[in-house]
Amino acid sequence: MIYFQGSKKTDLMTMPFYNELFLRVLTALIGVPLVVAIIWLGSPYLDGLAYLLLAGMATEWLALNKKTALISVKGFGIFLSGGLYITTAMVCLLTWCSEPWLILWLLCIVWATDIGAYFVGSYLGGPKLAPSISPGKTWSGFFGGLVCGVAAGWVLYSFAAIALPISLLGTLLIITVASQVGDLIESRVKRHFKVKDSGTIIPGHGGLLDRLDSLLFVAICYKLLFVLSKF
């Protein structure tokens, strides 16, 4: 359907996309500086934010599982494993509340990976990464995210004294891959529950699980790297 306004024509089918994109950008412009400021302030503000996020994600997870958790062994198993996954990731992040630079560093890598994957994948296209889980993701986007995440982490590392479990390059490669795996995990969960978003708390972005999916898996993998490096 084409709508004419003066000498311009606008496809009404594309308007919701641009409205959602505008809302996403506006929310990010407000939310990202606020989150960064709280992280920079450290404890007790960062602790409070972490507990609020944990409560919010737990609420979303309960809402997703309310119809399936108690009707089958599989449903109850998914409910428990998801709850354990979210809690474990947040416990890892809470242990770093005295190291705001580390959390900011991980966040920036996750954001750079996500942005790189989106723009490179959108521009180059190509073979699908995991069509049965997330049809929009491509291998070009995966490698674009890998390059952008590693580059951002490498540049920012020079500004912060961060203890690494292994070499810088090895750590960055694992973090960027984990970031994209975390995104795929959330996509698989949403396909299981047949929902577009995990919630609606963040305008234009969906729920907390939608926005923190990559960071959750990154936190677990980064902590696991430190544990394994001691053996």
Rank of each mutant, 00 (worst) to 15 (best):
F159E: 01
A160W: 06
A130C: 07
G153M: 06
A117I: 11
A117D: 08
C97Y: 02
G141P: 08
V155N: 02
T138Y: 01
F143N: 13
C97S: 13
K137Y: 06
V147T: 14
V120L: 14
G141F: 01
V120T: 15
F159V: 00
W111M: 15
F159T: 02
G145Y: 00
I133T: 06
G121E: 01
C97P: 00
S140K: 11
L156Y: 00
F142P: 07
L146W: 00
S158P: 00
V155P: 02
A151F: 15
P127M: 05
C97M: 09
A117T: 12
P100S: 06
I109Y: 14
I133V: 11
L124F: 13
G149A: 09
L164W: 01
A152G: 08
I133C: 04
T138R: 04
V155K: 02
P100G: 03
V150G: 09
G144Y: 01
K128T: 05
L129P: 03
A161D: 08
V155C: 04
G153H: 09
I162A: 04
P100I: 02
Y123H: 09
W96N: 03
W154T: 08
G136R: 06
V110Q: 04
Y118P: 01
L146V: 12
W101D: 12
W105C: 12
G116I: 00
A151E: 07
C97E: 06
S122N: 13
S98N: 11
Y118R: 09
G144F: 03
T113H: 11
W111S: 15
S134P: 03
W154E: 04
G145I: 05
A160S: 05
E99A: 10
L146M: 15
A160V: 06
V150M: 10
W111P: 08
W105S: 10
P100E: 04
G144A: 12
L124H: 08
W96H: 07
I109P: 14
A161C: 02
P100T: 04
I115Q: 02
P127Q: 07
Y118L: 14
G126Q: 06
G153L: 05
A160C: 03
V155M: 05
G145M: 08
L146A: 04
I109R: 10
P131G: 06
L146P: 09
L164G: 02
Y123T: 11
G141D: 05
W96T: 04
P135V: 01
A152I: 09
T138I: 07
T138Q: 07
F119W: 15
S122P: 00
V110K: 00
L156D: 00
W105Y: 15
L124G: 04
S140C: 12
T113I: 14
I103R: 01
L104H: 10
W96A: 06
L124R: 12
A160M: 10
G149L: 12
F119N: 13
W101V: 01
A160T: 01
G153S: 05
F159W: 07
A117Q: 12
D114C: 15
L102K: 15
Y157T: 00
F119E: 09
A161R: 07
L164F: 01
S132G: 12
I115C: 07
